[in-house]
Design a protein around this nucleic acid. Structure first.
Lengths: 136, 136
DNA sequence: CTCGTGACGTAATGTTATTACATTGCAGTT
DNA sequence: AACTGCAATGTAATAACATTACGTCACGAG
C-alpha cells in the first residue's frame, strides 16, 4: 500500500493538526491563520503548515482555493474525484459550497480533447452571493 | 458615455503602458514583472501597476489568472462576456489559451439557479499539458 | 473660483510562499 | 547492533505578491 489513498490512515502529527484546524473552522483558512491557531501545539514556522497542506491536498483531504489563497477541508473525502470539484464562494459571508458537476467536467474534458490539451487539474471557483446574502 | 466599455478609448498613460507590456509579452506576467519592465517609463512602485491592472480588468481588457497570481491581456477584447471565460495553462511551457465555452457557463449558471447562488464571476483555469508539450 | 472626483506618486507595511540547510526517526538490510 | 536510505521535521532567512495610508495634481461641474 503506497498510493495516496493509503496514506489517509497514516497522517503525521502535523498533518493531523492542520486537518483538524481546517475541519474545526468549517470554512477556508489561510496558511498563516492555521499557523496562528496551531502555535499552542508547537507550530512555529509557515513551512510546517505548507508542508502539511501539500500532503493533505495530495491525499485529497484538503482543497486549495486559488482565488482566496486559502484552504478548506474536503467535504467529500473518499469521493473518487478530488480533481473534479468546484466551489461557490459567497463574497458577503464567506461561506464556501463544494460541489461536483460531472457534466461541467465532461464539457471541459471535451474542450481539452478537441484542442489537444491534457487536463491535469481543473480549478473552478464561482464568486457571488449565497441565497441568504442575496436577500439580506 | 460612462460605462466600462466607453473607457476603452480613454486609457490613461499608466494603463496604456501596462496593457502594452502585457500585449507585448503575449502571455501572463506578474505585477512585479510588469513593474520591472516599465521602470524605464517611470514606474517606481507596485501600486502604479496594481491600480492600472484593476482598471484594465474592470474594462475587460485584462484577465487575472488566480492560480498563477499573474495577468494576461484579453485575447477577445470587445467580446461580450469578460466574465465568461476560461483558461488552459500549460504547466510545461507556460502558454495560456483563453476560451469561452457557453455550454460550460450555462451549466454552472444552472447549478447556481438550482442552489440559490448568484454568480458574480466564474474562475475556470485548467492546468495541464498543451499538445506540443504532451508529446515532447 | 471652489469643490468634488479620479488619477497619480511615494513610502511603509502586510500577507502569502519558498529556499536552504541541519536534524531526527524509522524501516529495511547486513 | 551498525549501516543506509528516505520521509518528515525544525529553523532561519528571504522572496514574491498585495494593500494601506497619505499627500499632490489635473480637471470638469456648479
Amino acid at each position: 500500500m503506497t498510493g495516496p489513498r493509503a496514506a489517509q490512515r497514516d497522517l503525521t502529527r502535523n498533518q493531523l493538526l492542520v486537518l483538524s484546524a481546517l475541519a474545526d473552522a468549517g470554512g477556508p483558512l489561510s496558511a498563516y491563520t492555521i499557523l496562528d491557531r496551531l502555535r499552542g501545539d508547537g507550530f512555529r514556522a509557515p513551512l510546517q503548515v505548507y508542508r502539511a497542506l501539500d500532503k493533505l491536498c495530495d491525499y485529497g483531504l484538503v482543497h486549495r482555493l486559488e482565488s482566496l489563497n486559502a484552504f478548506v477541508a474536503c467535504r467529500h473525502p473518499g469521493g473518487q474525484s478530488h480533481h473534479a470539484v468546484a466551489f461557490a464562494i459567497c463574497e458577503a459571508c464567506g461561506t464556501v459550497a463544494e460541489f461536483a458537476d460531472d457534466t461541467t467536467m465532461r464539457r471541459l474534458g471535451a474542450w481539452g480533447s478537441r484542442h489537444d490539451f491534457r487536463i491535469g487539474k481543473a480549478t473552478i471557483e464561482l464568486k457571488g452571493l449565497c441565497g441568504f446574502c442575496a436577500v439580506n
